[in-house]
Design a protein around this nucleic acid. Sequence first.
DNA 1: AACTCTAGCAACCGCCTTTCA
DNA 2: CTGAAAGGCGGTTGCTAGAGT
Length: 323
Amino acid sequence: MRKPEQTTAITNSNKGIMKLRKGLWSPEEDDKLMIYMLRNGQGCWTDIARNAGLQRCGKSCRLRWINYLRPDLKRGAFSPQEEQLIVHLHSILGNRWSQIAARLPGRTDNEIKNFWNSTIKKRLKANNSVSKTSPNNSTDHETSSDPCRDIIGVDMFISMQDHELKAMCMESSFTSTTTTSSSSMHNNSMLMNGHDHFGLLPPVLQNNKNNEANGPSNLFNVGMGGYNDCGVFEVPYMMGMMGNDDITLGSGVMDGDVNANPTNYMVEKKSTNFNHHFNVDGKVKVEEVVGFENHWPGESLKMGEWDLEGLFATIPSLPYLDF
DNA sequence: AACTCTAGCAACCGCCTTTCA
DNA sequence: CTGAAAGGCGGTTGCTAGAGT
C-alpha cells in the first residue's frame, strides 16, 4: 500500500503544473470516482480523472475502479472451487492473470495474481519439499505433467470432476457472454437448462448467497438476463448489499421480447450507504452501473468482459461448452 | 507490553499494444 | 505511415494487521 499523501507534479497543457496524488485512495476520492462512473459511465480515463475532480492519473483511476470500486466485484476469500479453477486455468494459461480473471466472475487479475503469489505458490513450495523428503510420493502424480497436482495436491485436484468444472464454467459464462449478444445469451441459457440455475435463485443471487459464508459483501452484484426453462426471459437482478438493505432488488420476468433490453431497470437507492463509504442520491440505472449503456445488444461489455468462446476455441482441455 | 515476523493485498512501475490524429 | 497518447497487463513494492515470541 502507498501513502495517500504522495504527490507527483506533472505538466498539463491546459492547466499548467498539476499535482497528481499517489498512494492509497481516500474515501472521498472513492466517492468522487464512483459517483462519476455511475453517472457518466466508462470513457477516457484521463478525462474521468479530470472531470471527477480527482488529482489522479487516468491509469490510477482505472486501476481503482477495476480492482476495487467496480460494482460487480465479488468480495471475500476464494472458494475451493474458485481455487481449483484458478489452478487449472493457470496450468493452461500461465501467468495471464487477466485471462484467468475473465473466467472468474467478480474477481480481478490483481486479486488472482496476489492470491497465486501469496497462497498457491507457497503451497507449491510446501508440496515440493514434501515430495522431496517423502519417498512415498514418487507416484505417478509426481511425474504428471499437470502442475495443478503439484500445487494443490493430487487428491484435491482429482476430486474436482469434469462436470463440476464444467458447471463452474457455465455459471461463470452466464454473466459474461450474455452481454455480447442476445443469441449468445440464448445459447448460454440453453446450457443452463438442467442445471437448476433458474431454480430458487438466479445465478448471481446464488453467487451472493454462497458468498455470505465469506462475510458480508458491501457491493451489489449485477447480472444479466437469460431464458428460464419455460422459455421466459428473466431480467437482471440487482443484489442488495448484504445486511444493509441499501439497494432495492430489481428483478422481474419479461415475456416474449427477445431483444428487450434487460438492463433497463431502475434501482432505487434506499439509503446513502452505498459502498463502504459511498454516498449517492437518487436512482441509478443498471446500465450506468455496469458501464455498458449503448452496448446492448450486440456490443461487447467494457467491464468484466468474458471471452469464453475464445477460451474454448483455444483451450482444448476445456471442451465442455458447445458453442 | 514490546518487538519481530509474515501474510495479504493495494497500488505503482514499466513495458507492450492499441488507438487516433 | 508515423508518432503520441491511452489502455492493458504482469511484475514488483511496501504498508498494514495479526500472529508469534
